[in-house]
Design a protein around this nucleic acid. Structure first.
Lengths: 199, 199
DNA sequence: GAATATAACGAACGTTCGTGCTATTATTTG
DNA sequence: CAAATAATAGCACGAACGTTCGTTATATTC
């Protein structure tokens, strides 16, 4: 591995953390260079455009998310354990030290939902995949008989993500100490609903 | 009413819509002035600082929200009708024409959750009040016997807001055509849970 | 209508933004 | 160790940022 790839990696790591706080647009090349004791132009040379930097930040974050949230959860047995793992690990993800501003994708989703371009498109792909993982995890649970047949996986995925977003809001903006406990209760209620034949 | 107050009002109206798209920081004084055929300095003179402009945008939005969402909902009878009104009107709010970028507060919440200062503080106040309205609306329903006694109003408020945020995400970022239908189902499930003695 | 207050303008300030070029170091390769 | 390549620094650019200033035009008040 070349040296350049090494520094590029550390740039992306820092940029990802910064983006979780101030957004992908808020990650300024000058500020990022200053944080890393690099010159603006030296840092810029690694990406050659800000959009490319943003895309690589998204890619870096997606890889981290895959390794920290999705992959270990998919190692859990189907049904409730796997869904619980996804939920727990997502909560941990939003509080992990490389993301001082919470979930990078929550920030980016709000920032880019009214724009066009490759960054938005990549973000949509990432978020669809994430919701897809939740949905198919439930579907596999249904197939295994752990959940009722009438449950809609896409409905469940949107519901679970809502619990996560509400936690993120209550926790990060309002600093509500009960945010996590409520999120867990809400998630348990969703699981209970999927278990029983409700709705 | 002075002429200045009139133009300031139209500035705030435009700024609020713009902020729903690009955030409170994204509302640039130059761009705002260009949209309104005003000079930068002429517009700036109305606020004397960007922070003051942001605060007034928040205030303007809060007033609109009060008039379009909260007040008419509180006119509905207690219990389910009032809660349904809050939910329906919130959905309408995020799609209303003066907010082409969706809910101003959803955008601002993510943008300012890692900052300090008066803008964040005001935003926290607004969001606490909003969750409070949901919670006390449920509480009044409990008092009237429409909902079970064991239901936690704050839990309910966070849950409902989660349904809203998930809708906002699925609808605005993913352009999911089923987002609203799922949000309505989720909301009905929450109501059903509050009716019965569940959790 | 004259006097006064308010509103809007145009130009400029210093800073920071993203992005080029060119030179100079480090690092890898032969 | 020399030659080739890659990585970083330095400097400059045009544009946009928020902000201040002095001045002109427009409303409001008497």
């Amino acid at each position: 591995m070349r040296k350049g790839d090494l520094t590029r990696q550390s740039i992306l790591e820092r940029a990802t953390g910064l983006a979780s706080k101030v957004g992908l647009d808020g990650v300024t090349i000058g500020a990022l260079a200053a944080e890393l004791d690099l010159s603006k132009s030296g840092l810029f040379a690694h990406f050659r455009s800000k959009e490319a930097l943003q895309l690589q930040v998204l890619e870096f974050g997606a890889t981290q998310f895959l390794e920290q949230v999705i992959r270990p959860s998919l190692a859990e047995p189907r049904g409730e354990p796997r869904l619980r793992a996804l939920f727990d690990r997502w909560l941990d993800w939003t509080r992990s030290s490389p993301l001082p501003g919470g979930c990078l994708f929550v920030q980016a989703a709000v920032e880019f939902d009214d724009r066009q371009g490759s960054v938005r498109e990549r973000l949509v792909g990432i978020q669809r995949q994430w919701l897809g993982v939740i949905a198919t995890s439930l579907q596999k649970g249904i197939d295994a008989g752990a959940f009722a047949g009438g449950v809609d996986p896409e409905q469940f995925a949107q519901d679970v993500y809502g619990v996560m977003l509400a936690y993120h809001h209550a926790s990060r903006l309002l600093h509500d100490p009960h945010a996590e406990a409520r999120a867990r209760r809400a998630f348990e209620a969703l699981l209970a609903g999927a278990r029983g034949a409700a709705h």
